[in-house]
Amino acid sequence: MAESWGTAFPSDYRDFLAVYGAGTIDDHLLIATASPDLGETTLGDLTSVASRVTASEDDDRPYPVWPEPGGLICWGATVDAAALHWDTSDADPDRWPVIVRSREGDFTRHDRGFAEFVVRMLGPSAERPLESPTLYGAPNSRFLSATEQRRLKSEGTDPWEYLEELYEANEADDYDADDGPLIMWHPDGTKEVIPGGTPDGG
């Protein structure tokens, strides 16, 4: 991973990939892999898109894009076209903040790492870093690895079938978005329940 990019990656991101792999939460929040040989969406795919987009914009863009020194590496995206990056200007990857580029082209810096950003996206709506009405949050959100999504589709099953029920419950005001466990589906099809909760602080 580090060899092909010429840099290490944050330890929380590496730990996440080692356990869960690349995938998506609620068909809304995509988390990419750094490995180009897995047949999944990669950091390189997303960063290439970010590079093309920023190249078409004004020269006064606030951040360079990798492989420029300190450039942004795009590790994720949302269904509503927000791109999620690391600012790699710090020599220590565990101190890389998250930079969000909105659909409109605005950049917002979040002084927290990958894992905390994702956890906060699953917390109460008013406390999330981004507006995400189709990300249901704990205790109802599910992470499905790209491998698990392919397996379900090959069996004729919609991986995101549960979202319709959540939507209907939400519309009926029966949905409770308080913190709770997050259901994580591993590539082998086993389920793990991660205790919820949002870290203290802003």
Rank of each mutant, 00 (worst) to 15 (best):
residue 158 D to T: 04
residue 136 Y to A: 13
residue 162 Y to H: 12
residue 167 Y to E: 11
residue 150 R to A: 09
residue 169 A to I: 08
residue 146 A to H: 09
residue 162 Y to F: 11
residue 174 D to E: 15
residue 176 D to N: 13
residue 168 E to G: 12
residue 159 P to W: 06
residue 155 E to T: 06
residue 158 D to F: 00
residue 153 K to P: 02
residue 175 Y to N: 04
residue 178 D to A: 15
residue 172 A to Q: 14
residue 156 G to F: 02
residue 146 A to V: 01
residue 170 N to A: 14
residue 140 N to G: 14
residue 166 L to F: 08
residue 136 Y to M: 08
residue 152 L to N: 00
residue 173 D to K: 15
residue 158 D to G: 05
residue 174 D to N: 15
residue 166 L to P: 04
residue 147 T to A: 11
residue 139 P to S: 05
residue 163 L to I: 08
residue 176 D to M: 10
residue 164 E to P: 00
residue 162 Y to E: 08
residue 136 Y to W: 13
residue 159 P to K: 05
residue 177 A to F: 10
residue 146 A to K: 08
residue 147 T to S: 07
residue 139 P to Q: 08
residue 170 N to G: 13
residue 136 Y to C: 09
residue 149 Q to C: 09
residue 174 D to K: 13
residue 145 S to L: 03
residue 141 S to E: 06
residue 158 D to E: 08
residue 167 Y to R: 15
residue 155 E to C: 06
residue 140 N to Y: 09
residue 155 E to D: 10
residue 175 Y to C: 01
residue 173 D to Y: 14
residue 152 L to I: 01
residue 141 S to G: 03
residue 176 D to Y: 05
residue 151 R to A: 07
residue 144 L to Y: 05
residue 147 T to D: 06
residue 135 L to P: 03
residue 157 T to C: 07
residue 160 W to T: 06
residue 173 D to W: 14
residue 169 A to C: 14
residue 137 G to N: 05
residue 174 D to C: 15
residue 143 F to E: 01
residue 178 D to Q: 15
residue 178 D to I: 12
residue 173 D to S: 15
residue 142 R to H: 11
residue 136 Y to I: 08
residue 149 Q to S: 03
residue 147 T to Y: 02
residue 138 A to Y: 06
residue 163 L to T: 06
residue 158 D to L: 04
residue 142 R to I: 08
residue 155 E to V: 06
residue 160 W to M: 01
residue 155 E to N: 09
residue 170 N to Q: 14
residue 148 E to P: 02
residue 156 G to L: 04
residue 161 E to H: 08
residue 135 L to C: 03
residue 156 G to N: 07
residue 174 D to S: 15
residue 174 D to G: 15
residue 170 N to W: 12
residue 135 L to W: 01
residue 153 K to E: 10
residue 153 K to T: 10
residue 151 R to C: 06
residue 164 E to S: 12
residue 173 D to F: 13
residue 155 E to A: 12
residue 161 E to P: 03
residue 178 D to N: 14
residue 170 N to V: 11
residue 167 Y to C: 11
residue 158 D to Q: 02
residue 143 F to Q: 02
residue 150 R to D: 09
residue 158 D to Y: 03
